[in-house]
């Protein structure tokens, strides 16, 4: 485990080293590519703002009004049984539907509980290991005119539940 953890520190610096070598010895001007990509990244991050603004206002209102607490209380007996902290409930609701909505709830969760708290760690694992399956299945298939998605949705739901449970178990083991 310790070796893996060591490796994890080196991943980003190593990728940067590869990029640096490409820029130094490449035949083309690869720093140009870097600037172009970086600009696109900056633009797409800023483009998130309008959606995030609306959704974070909504999520903040939900927390401030006490509705989030009420809803969490409602599911907490069930969540306790399967070992999932009840604070994750808003994230579990939004994660399948939209990337920006789940980013909004994730940010709220981090600032409410502290980034190193147990629920925040579980939430980070969930965010990193599962994606917006409702959105993915809707968009992927509807664009090409496929109406019968067969076992896509059941498998996606199963995998998402697995990612939630596994995230909580892994956090218990690691931290």
């Amino acid at each position: 485990m310790e070796i893996l953890e060591r490796i994890s520190y080196y991943i980003l610096p190593l990728i940067l080293l590869i990029v640096a070598l490409i820029i130094l010895f490449g035949k083309k001007d690869y720093f140009d590519s870097f600037l172009r990509g970086a600009k696109n990244g900056a633009v797409s991050a800023v483009n998130l703002l309008p959606t995030l603004c609306a959704l974070i206002v909504g999520v903040s209102m939900l927390t401030a009004s006490g509705a989030g607490e009420l809803l969490s209380q409602l599911v907490s007996p069930f969540f306790d049984k399967i070992g999932v902290p009840k604070e994750l409930f808003p994230l579990i609701l939004t994660r399948p539907i939209s990337g920006s909505a789940s980013l909004a709830t994730f940010g709220e969760l981090l600032s409410q509980n502290g980034a190193d708290s147990f629920p925040a760690l579980c939430a980070s694992l969930i965010m990193a290991s599962s994606d917006t399956f409702v959105y993915v299945i809707c968009v992927y298939f509807s664009q090409v005119g496929i109406k019968k998605t067969r076992h896509a949705l059941p498998v996606a739901i199963f995998v998402s539940c697995l990612s939630i449970l596994l995230s909580c178990i892994l956090c218990r083991i690691f931290y």
Partner: peptide, 22 residues
Amino acid sequence: KSVTVVISILGLMTLWNGILEV
């Protein structure tokens, strides 16, 4: 807060997308 969130991911998204383009 929405602005804070965007700013907090802005830097890394810029860097990461530049790296990937290279």
